[in-house]
Write a protein that binds this DNA or RNA. Structure first.
Length: 603
RNA sequence: GGGGCCGUAGCUCAAUUGGUUAGAGCAUCGGACUGUCGAUCCGAAGGUUGAGGGUUCGAGCCCCUUCGGCCUCGCCA
């Protein structure tokens, strides 16, 4: 059964060679005498021919074949006759005339056809993942994922990084996402947590003198999934000593450029654009702007404040803003498109309303004017100011949200993306990268009356803002950076705090007491006291990166064995109940059992 | 925890206002066929309409409950 060639790689140059192939029957066409089979292996398809006059025994065998049966065969490569080539197949110039075959395995009729599987109910595809993964498009994505990991390992190796594994069974820290817990058998009543990321371990590796670390590592966050998010996902995790933010960005943008070049043949021009967080929020309302189209947000608060429209004036007086965008050609939307569809859309993101103006030539035909139920509240001069601010043209549509700055941005950012796609403004096929830098170190948590870390509690402030730790914590910038492409955050990191005194101060502002800090990360704070070098790093979401590289919208498409939105694996049916004896060993009772116990007590 | 969409044959879908025996294409099974390549032609088989309950003379369709899938808000340091 020694395989000599892969099906999909046979070409005219192999004509007259004797080949032995292995694979699955992709399809068969039985003409009674001549039988054609498209044989498939990982490399692709090739047509093999069974001719009773060439070899009667294998021809007889071939007539019993069915789709997805597994065979091996030997035959001679020959050119197809004139007019018989199949231009749809890379192997379509040739075929293999078979003189011997062996059936390696039969197969049940698959629950769905591999060639139409893309349209099949995903639930079924997940239950029979091994069949779904036989498809070309699925294998292509697995291959891109492999290639990306391989390029990453080669690149970091060349740059002097070591791939070092960190524990999967770790210590639970209540900050951040919900942990997945693993009960300890040897320490009854105690739990490990699966890592949300190897954050503290990689920093400790810097204290250990490893200087340059990376890891392609599985991470776990027990939060509700989304199209681009799974509880279990993979990071390209990086940490470096004796570096500043620029050093980290430079090393890592070169990796990204190499990946895009090798996988997509896309040239990423270096250095990648740097944009401040403040600019991103002002112009795009979000810290991960899609730069494939313009339609920037504008602040109209000054004009709105002077208008006669009460909703606007009162919002601005209360410290809010009126922000908006100008959708080119958006005047074609009907009033119900705007007041129903788009207003409902922004309402999902918390906006209380959506105000609008259509731009039309004025009656004299000399200039432009605003048309809407709001226009009467704005003087002609104010209207011209609004037009000028947006550089608005005829048939444009201005949409505005009046609210707190945060709320207005939160509604306008997704609205901008939606309109960009709907109006065809997004330059598809382009990859627009930017680093977003100068994030605030903290954001104020109104409910808890304290600051929260925007990034994480180990992120270093920029040196010149260190003084504000006491005086003005809300305006401290951090040495954090996110890499954004086409509105998707594919990585983020920071320079870390290596001074225990600064770290203590930050915990203080986060209202983490010394006692709590010692309990949760005492091991790490102690490490910082033993000669921690200045260090920083970054982590990329491998899944999202591969989604971009394969142009898929769904994270399940780039994971071999993904979970459903409720965290189930439909192939293995995990999670599942466990034996009572397993629980016993772990000194655990599940609530169902507790209820049972309580009931018995009552009786 | 909230909102939205969906569930009919193995698969993809149809089924008039609530009305006869729930149909079609593909797949499957049987037969025919020497150049097909999404083969073709003839024939057959295939259904607890996700599940449970209700309204009705009558439910795939209306109502309630429930299970599952997807998208999303919250959540994701």
């Amino acid at each position: 059964m020694k395989r000599t060639h892969q099906c999909g790689l046979l070409r005219s140059e192999h004509v007259d060679q004797e080949v032995t192939l292995c694979g699955w029957v992709n399809s068969y066409r039985d003409h009674g005498n001549l039988v054609f089979v498209d044989l498939r292996d990982r490399s692709g398809l090739v047509q093999i021919v069974f001719d009773p006059e060439y070899n009667s025994q294998s021809h007889l065998q071939s007539r019993t074949l069915r789709c997805e049966w597994v065979i091996t065969c030997r035959g001679r490569v020959r050119p197809r006759g004139q007019g018989l080539e199949n231009p749809k197949l890379p192997t379509g110039q040739i075929e293999v005339i078979v003189d011997w075959m062996e059936l390696l395995n039969t197969a049940k009729t698959p629950p769905f056809d591999t060639d139409t599987a893309a349209q099949v109910n995903e639930e079924l595809r997940l239950s029979y993942r091994y069949i779904d993964l036989r498809r070309r498009s699925m294998q292509d994505r697995l291959r891109v994922r492999h290639r990306t990991a391989k390029i990453t390992r080669d690149y970091f190796d060349e740059q002097g990084f070591w791939e070092i594994e960190t524990p999967m069974l770790g210590k639970s820290t209540p900050e951040g996402a919900r942990d997945f817990l693993v009960p300890s058998r040897l320490y009854k009543g105690m739990f490990y947590a699966l890592p949300q990321s190897p954050q503290l371990f990689k920093q400790i590796l810097m204290v250990s003198g490893c200087e340059r670390y990376f890891q392609i590592v599985r991470c776990f966050r027990d939060e509700d999934p989304r199209a681009d998010r799974q509880a279990e996902f993979t990071q390209i995790d990086v940490e470096m000593s004796f570096v500043d933010a620029e050093d980290v960005m430079t090393v890592n943008e070169r990796l990204i450029a190499r990946i895009f070049k090798e996988i997509l043949d896309v040239d990423v021009s270096l250095p990648i654009l740097r944009m401040t967080y403040a600019q991103a929020m002002d112009e795009y309302g979000i810290d991960r702007p899609d730069l494939r189209f313009e339609m920037k947000l504008k602040d109209l608060s000054d004009i709105a404040k002077a208008s006669a429209f009460k909703v606007f004036t009162s919002v601005v007086e209360k410290g809010g803003v009126v922000k908006g965008l100008c959708a080119p050609g958006g005047a074609k939307f009907s009033r119900s498109d705007i007041e129903k569809t788009l207003t409902d859309f922004v309402a999902d993101f918390g906006a209380k309303g959506l105000s609008w103006f259509k731009i039309e030539p004025n009656q004299s035909g000399q200039g432009l004017e605003l048309k809407s139920n709001l226009a009467k509240f704005f003087t002609p001069a104010q209207q011209q100011e609004i037009l000028a601010r947006f550089h608005a043209g005829p048939d444009d549509l201005i949409l505005m949200v009046a609210d707190t700055r945060e709320a207005a941005n939160k509604a306008l950012a997704p609205l901008r993306v939606r309109l960009g796609k709907e109006l065809g403004l997004v330059r598809e096929g382009e990859y627009r990268f930017t680093w977003v830098v100068d994030f605030p170190l903290f954001e104020w948590n109104e409910n808890e009356k304290r600051f929260d870390s925007l990034h994480h509690p180990f992120t270093s402030p920029v040196p010149e803002d260190l003084g504000k730790l006491d005086s003005d914590p809300a305006h401290i910038r951090s040495q954090a950076y996110d890499l954004v492409v086409n509105g998707s955050e594919i990585g983020g990191g920071s320079i870390r705090i290596h001074d225990p005194k600064v770290q203590a101060k930050v915990f203080d502002l986060l209202k983490i007491t010394q006692k709590q800090a010692q309990e949760r990360f005492g091991f790490f704070l102690r490490a910082l006291e033993y000669g921690a070098p200045p260090h920083g790093g970054i982590a990329f979401g491998l899944d999202r990166l591969v989604m971009l590289l394969t142009k898929t919208e769904n994270i399940r498409d780039v994971i071999a064995f993904p979970k459903t939105q409720r965290g189930q694996c439909l192939l293995t049916e995990a999670p599942s109940e466990v034996d009572a004896s397993q629980l016993e060993e772990l000194n655990l009772r599940v609530q169902k059992h507790l209820h049972q116990v309580e009931k018995e007590r009552e009786l």
